[in-house]
Write a protein that binds this DNA or RNA. Structure first.
Lengths: 206, 206
DNA sequence: GAATAAATTGAATCATTATTCACTCTTTAG
DNA sequence: CTAAAGAGTGAATAATGATTCAATTTATTC
């Protein structure tokens, strides 16, 4: 026998794998999954096309893993905001702000994660992603409804509607490109959105 | 000279053109623009592939025209509801209901019109479509804000958020497939959505 | 019926991308 | 240094789907 995988090689391979994921992220964040061809990714990562297939079983698997990584981070941030003890209104407000801020900072990425059609493997991940959001928002809404901080309503639907309202406001073609917004205008937009969403779930009494 | 276009032929051509548009609509309503290949369209319409190109300059133009037709109808319905005189709340409620009902009845079409990425020509039309919606919703909101029926808010943003909330609630993967809903469940879903949206724009006092 | 012009056809072509695989290059162990 | 085994390569292949166009058919006029 002669060749055996060493820690050195294992690390190097892991680094390449990471690099491929990183440049894919870059491409998706710039122009969506459509913009992420295998040839382009390989080029950006400085490896041959075939090498991408050495690290991933195929484009779908690469995309699915990327999606999982990216969304995990997003959901994590929102979940943290919602897990703050105390007023459900304040927790929801903060979570919405986090969601909106992150989406506004990377609108193409947000769109790719929320809505862009890609392929069945990614769709599966997306389902999990949405369910994760729904779980968090929904439970905060349920708690708030129970303690009177929010109006009685269908929490599952409201959670979807909140996500939709934010997504459309931020990434829909109606909104000016995020890049063109001044810092102030961006903050104002986020505050408007958060206000709209909070208002939507609050009891009519205030 | 010998051949000259006669009314008979003109009609026949127009009929074929219409048939192509109709089967394209059918396909888009079933599985989105992705499902509408030129070969499939030609087959459905009972003409050769090449004939599609006799009636349309290309797939993009065919799609753009189809999109224009389909959205015109949608916007028209919503606009009619909003143009009812009297309470802005009631008008908005009715318009939201119409929007939601139509989207729920043809969720794939709704998704194709609202969000599916297709090509730049369609994107242009989509921009107009959204602007048309925005104009109508926005002006109703502005009137309602002015007369105190709605809470003071950014009407442009609220209009986008309303569209997003409905779209996500209805066509997002969280919602069960529309086909599986009983008549009652569908009505309930629509009422919940309308309630959410109305609540979002109402003054806190009620 | 013959001549003409337009309409129709669909196989061939072009374009785009994912995927493969025979080959070369590197790394490792002895 | 050499042999073995894995890693890396990228031209070739495969799959999909839009578009073209030479040949054919059909409609019209005289």
């Amino acid at each position: 026998m002669a060749y055996r995988e060493t820690p050195r090689m294992r690390e190097r391979k892991a680094a390449t794998r990471q690099r491929i994921l990183a440049v894919t992220h870059e491409r998706v964040a710039t122009g969506g999954f459509r913009n992420a061809s295998v040839a382009g990714i390989a080029g950006d990562a400085g490896v041959a096309i075939g090498s991408v297939y050495r690290h991933f079983d195929g484009k779908s698997e690469l995309f699915a893993e990327l999606f999982r990584n990216a969304t995990q981070r997003e959901v994590q941030r929102v979940a943290e905001a919602l897990e703050q003890p105390g007023s459900r209104q304040q927790a929801l407000q903060e979570a919405l702000r986090v969601f909106a801020q992150r989406a506004l900072r990377a609108p193409n990425l947000a769109w790719a994660l929320i809505a862009e059609p890609v392929d069945p493997l990614v769709d599966e991940e997306r389902l999990r992603y949405r369910e994760a959001y729904a779980r968090h928002f929904q439970s905060a809404l349920e708690q708030g409804i129970a303690n009177g901080e929010f109006a009685p309503q269908n929490p599952r639907l409201a959670s979807a509607a909140l996500v939709g309202a934010i997504a459309e406001s931020l990434v829909g073609p109606l909104s000016p490109a995020a890049a063109d917004l001044s810092q102030d205008a961006a903050s104002q937009l986020i505050e408007d959105i958060v206000q709209f969403c909070l208002h939507a779930v609050q009891p009519l009494g205030g």
